[in-house]
Amino acid sequence: MWTEQELLMILQGLWETAVIVFVSTFFGYVLGLPLGVLLAVTDSDGIKPHPMLYKVLDVVTNILRSVPFIILLVVLIPLTRAIVGKSYGTAATIVPLVIAAAPFIGRMVESSLKEVDHGVIEAAQSLGAGTFKIIWNVLLAEARTSLLVGVTIAFGTILGYSAMAGAVGGGGLGAIAIRYGYNRWQPNILWPCVIILVLLVQMFQVLGMKISKDLDRRRS
């Protein structure tokens, strides 16, 4: 059914996809988490309202979110080249993925943090907690299950985007599926790639939900 070469290619693709998605999710959060915190904190009903800063972040986030990923990929080629030295391959896929994921992650973090009961924040303030302590000990700590659900969603979304990166010469299973499955119509390559991708998303969904549920202390 498969030549040894094809098997190796699929395995290589799986490895690349894993690297791309993990690294992109990680850096997506490096940018997106502070962005989400800032959005939640500086909004008019946040703990440190700052209308100007909120507006700027809000607009930038919306602009980035409204550019289709496939276009963003092309637009960001100069930036990608500046950071990783080339505009194709595994490492080059990560840059646009991070830029596309960060605002999306920021929005999810923002909405998770806004779910935290305002009364609890007020109680912390009445106990003398400053802004930083409230962010760390109240907002992030109380929203942790919702944040973790967000991570699994981000993971799935980034995995989906990573396939598109294949279209412009990025690496990973998505690229293989497009090259062999679409351009050459080789179902024996297409289907394993698709199934592996589906399984990956499923696995992370189940794992993420389980961790998030295990960590939730709101149920008696």
């Binding site: 009364g119 009445s126 003398g128 202390r217 709101r218």
Partner: peptide, 26 residues
């Protein structure tokens, strides 16, 4: 100042109708 206020607030405890406990802490 904000810093002084944080310290003074520790001298003024407050309890609420809906208790407002941290749900993820024991």
């Amino acid at each position: 100042t904000n810093r002084e206020l944080s310290v003074v607030r520790r001298e003024i405890g407050m309890i609420f109708q809906h208790f407002n406990l941290l749900m993820q802490r024991n």
